[in-house]
Simulated scan of single mutants.
Amino acid sequence: MRFRHAPEIWADHPTLAAGVLVVDGVSDRAAPDDPVERYVDQARERLRNGPASALPQLQAWRRTFAAMGLKPTQYRCAAESLLRRLGKDGTLPRIHPLVDLCNAASAAAAIPVAALDRDRVKGDLEVRRAHGDETYTTFTGEVERPPPGEVIFADEAGQAHARRWTHKQSGTSIVRPETRDVLIVSEALHPGAAADVEALLTALAADVAKAWPGVAPRVTILTSTRPAVELAG
């Protein structure tokens, strides 16, 4: 299995910074409560300093969504949605230990983080523009077809594992109790994004290794000249 961004994505978004964290052998029995709470506290501090929409990390995504023809107040990147939920509810939902850790880290950094069950991805996974014949399954099981040109995470079977780039993942490859092998992807577009994405994934890797003893997370930073990473399995 290989993960990559299509050449046109790098060409159209020259400020893109992306990285992946490959995790093999997780379970739902870990309890990374300390790092989750630490990240949530950092996210709360961000919100105390002003609205999430004013953060440069999220402003960059808003500009990108607008350029793609999406209303930034209707379709938000996942990190902004998490911060808005934290501001409203005072906490983040608990779903799965690894997802909780990724969500908290995403909110703290104001950078989107996606966690996908690799066993549910068919062949290579590519961030690219939709052809119009791909299928996307919502969390409630409804099937949609992304329109041609929309940025999606697409596998070789024509499954879209995310719509509107960093807006929302698919119900097909969400992390479940039985999930063992995970691909974590982080992407950003703001000034200084490359260093921030690397720092975010490096910290996540350390948290994962501590919460799941024996697991050896692997971080890879992607660039326009190194746009792909080969994954085991």
Rank of each mutant, 00 (worst) to 15 (best):
R218V: 10
A52V: 15
V215M: 00
D24S: 11
R2T: 14
A130S: 14
R94M: 11
G214T: 04
M68Y: 15
W212R: 00
R38D: 14
D89N: 12
R29F: 14
A130G: 05
R176W: 12
A6C: 08
P14N: 02
H190F: 13
V175N: 02
R48L: 11
A115T: 10
T223Y: 01
G192M: 03
A194E: 11
A199E: 11
R128V: 13
C77I: 08
A11S: 13
G123K: 03
A232Q: 10
I95M: 09
V143S: 08
A52E: 14
V175P: 07
D12L: 10
A209C: 04
T172W: 05
V182G: 01
S106N: 06
A60H: 02
D33F: 10
A194V: 13
L70R: 09
K71T: 15
A211Q: 05
H167M: 13
L21F: 10
P227R: 01
L92Q: 05
L98R: 02
L231T: 04
A228S: 13
E134S: 05
P56F: 01
T179E: 00
A108E: 11
Q159E: 09
L92E: 05
A11W: 07
A109Q: 09
I221N: 00
E80T: 01
E156M: 13
H131P: 06
D89E: 15
R76H: 13
A104C: 06
A18I: 00
I95P: 02
P213F: 06
L83F: 08
L83K: 03
P35M: 03
H161K: 02
P56I: 07
E230L: 08
A216L: 11
A206F: 06
E198C: 05
H96S: 07
T220Q: 01
S173K: 04
H131G: 15
A43C: 08
I9N: 04
R218N: 03
A18S: 15
A110H: 07
A194N: 01
H96G: 08
Q74R: 10
A205E: 04
A203H: 10
P148M: 10
P148L: 11
E45S: 13
R62Y: 06
P7R: 00
V182M: 02
M68W: 15
H96K: 02
D41T: 15
A209G: 05
A115H: 09
Q57A: 15
Y39M: 04
R129F: 11
V36W: 01
K71H: 14
T179F: 05
E134C: 07
L55S: 02
K71Q: 15
E45K: 10
A206L: 12
F139I: 12
A203T: 15
D124P: 01
A154G: 10
R128M: 12
V40L: 09
G233P: 08
P217Q: 03
T223D: 00
E156K: 06
H131K: 11
E178D: 15
E150N: 04
A105E: 05
A195P: 03
